[in-house]
Design a protein around this nucleic acid. Structure first.
Lengths: 126, 126
DNA sequence: CATTCATGTCAGATAATCTAACATCGGCGT
DNA sequence: ACGCCGATGTTAGATTATCTGACATGAATG
């Protein structure tokens, strides 16, 4: 399943396509980037280029906002997810301490509740 | 698996992206379209928009050309494939006659030999 | 050698995207 | 009520990407 990940993270979509796929305006998409919720790449001509993962994330952001979570809240969520991911990556280097395990598990349980939002690592079709 | 097909046939890529994914020039891509080997859609502004299936097909075309098959030959191949597809579709309507069966089977066997080209319906990992 | 096929290249026009700035609008605290 | 702030709309001017159409080229081939 390594190929699939690569495909989904390839930055191949211009913002116009992303607008259609997400029903967001260019203004919104750029604003979420300014708020560090998404990180599109840039092509040689400085145009933003998005991956399918980026589209997924934008749809997720849309859901969160519709549920009343504000941008700062969403950012906090993603920041935490990144910490978990880093912890997991580090865990593959050196075996983790008991405290690490506790922190990671706690983080994941925290994210369990909520409003029907996808658990971290879940991705929707397309 | 209906979703996957839909995804792969969604026209979301501009020609610049397709150029990178296929290592073809815009000139080549447009020429293959003029020769009816690919059929990109157009957006509201008349820009060509390609699907992942289109990218697959372009890579296939590249392989055929590298093997010495010329554009007319490739077109003939694709025309036949389309006939087969139509026959199969029709077969779901009314049961097919013996002659139909013979023609279809013959078509498929013809495509068996060759130079290591993908059988019809095969798709490479993008 | 003249053609044809596949591709390169160029020019002029149009579309898409960029940044930066200012406008709007709803909620919220004072 | 007033003013602030977060999220989004809108506009202008500049830049990049893509379009069509034409002409050029290099290799193969009769």
């Amino acid at each position: 399943m390594k190929e699939k990940e690569l495909r989904r993270s390839l930055a191949v979509l211009p913002i116009g396509t992303v607008m259609k796929l997400t029903s967001l305006t260019a203004r919104q998409i750029r604003y979420y980037e300014a708020q560090q919720l998404v990180f599109p790449e840039r092509n040689e001509g400085n145009r933003r280029m998005y991956s399918l993962n980026d589209v997924d994330r934008l749809l997720e952001i849309k859901d969160y906002l519709a549920d009343g979570v504000n941008v700062a809240g969403i950012k906090a969520i993603y920041d935490q997810q990144q910490q978990v991911a880093q912890a997991k990556a580090a865990a593959q280097q050196k075996p983790l301490t008991d405290e690490d395990v506790r922190r990671i598990l706690q983080d994941e349980f925290i994210r369990q509740g909520g409003l029907g939002h996808p658990a971290p690592g879940m991705q929707r079709p397309l």
